[in-house]
Design a protein around this nucleic acid. Sequence first.
DNA 1: TGTACATCAGTGAACGCGCGTTCACTGATGTAC
DNA 2: TGTACATCAGTGAACGCGCGTTCACTGATGTAC
Lengths: 211, 211
Amino acid sequence: MRQPVELLEKNRPRQDRAKRTYENILASAAELLVEVGVERISTNLIAERAGITVPALYRYFPNKYSVLHALGAAMMDRQNQVFADWFNEHASDVGVDALFSGVYDLLKQTYDATLAQPGGLEIVQSLRAVAPLQEVRLESHRLVASQFAQSIAELLGEPVTEELQICARVTVDTGYAQIEMALEDQSVPPEAVLREGARVIRLYWQDILAS
Amino acid sequence: MRQPVELLEKNRPRQDRAKRTYENILASAAELLVEVGVERISTNLIAERAGITVPALYRYFPNKYSVLHALGAAMMDRQNQVFADWFNEHASDVGVDALFSGVYDLLKQTYDATLAQPGGLEIVQSLRAVAPLQEVRLESHRLVASQFAQSIAELLGEPVTEELQICARVTVDTGYAQIEMALEDQSVPPEAVLREGARVIRLYWQDILAS
DNA sequence: TGTACATCAGTGAACGCGCGTTCACTGATGTAC
DNA sequence: TGTACATCAGTGAACGCGCGTTCACTGATGTAC
């Protein structure tokens, strides 16, 4: 069936010129993801857009999936970082209630971070659709979920149960669903979607914490 | 930038043999979506798998996006039908409360319907990732959302406000997010995800209806 | 019921193109003395 | 500071392959009389 694909990068860029080339490849790939889509993107197109020859690209990446992988991993890292920053800022507050009153901020900041990356939405969608890359997104969401569950447990002074883990996981994907909808469906006002998304999550945790 | 792609089908199959061929093309495409993914699928592969020559495929579809479109549209129709059936069954009940107590059933039935279609998850993911097909999924979700909003409004004897529309839209994508997570993340028990997803939606509407 | 004809369904062969990937290479940059 | 050398970065040319698409065609099915 589906044979494994090498996703790791090859030579790391060492000199300044090489670092610029490397970043250029990623930026070009992001542009092309928007312009032609995952099914049409190719190493040839990426190299042409980046103003280098194809073998120069192969110096850093073993294949085109590896380029998408690098792009996707960077996007996930940025989203994870937004969560970590938000959490550190809100967890110092009085307690769990204050945390959930800040959910809108979290959604908005993640939304902004995805919007700030050119092709951000297309990158996330590619991670979903391309099988060898799916674990990148899933791992990121699992990580955020388990950090979230652990922090809640600490704040409450309770153990991290399987139940709590699942609630956290459902929360994370609910949040991302709103963010992606806000980005992809032009027919609906983004802020309203994020506001309602935050409300959904707040009500959910009010109920969990009440029991 | 992105030029429009013809998605409509060409000749409709008329004879029995042709209908079998047509269905065979769709079934083969679904299999290949699972085996090789959207970025690798091609008219050549589909025709080979279906046991026909490529020009036979071109008799019915103008290009490969049109095949994916037919597959995706059929999947969306089936999901919409699940919603319609569920709604008709639950709306005859005493009122709005009974409706929301059946949300788990709706999620489970939609989950089952997607699982029953070979490559169901991959089809939905393709609709997301391939630009010319994105409207198929968005239109379907918008349709379900507005039917939902309208029905709620009728049950309450109130008008369909923009606010209500957005709540319904957020609800729909929240529900589908749980279904997709249940299908794609093997590390989490599907029933638990759907159960919590249903709880999220129920709590949300309790709050909306209370105000 | 038989057959001639019209329409529908599918084939074989061919096309030009862009794909991913590799090779031996030239040129640019850094560093040891 | 100058220069020889090692390493790093990128090139030009080439390859075989599968892609999407079209053509003129044969074969299968349906129907009018």
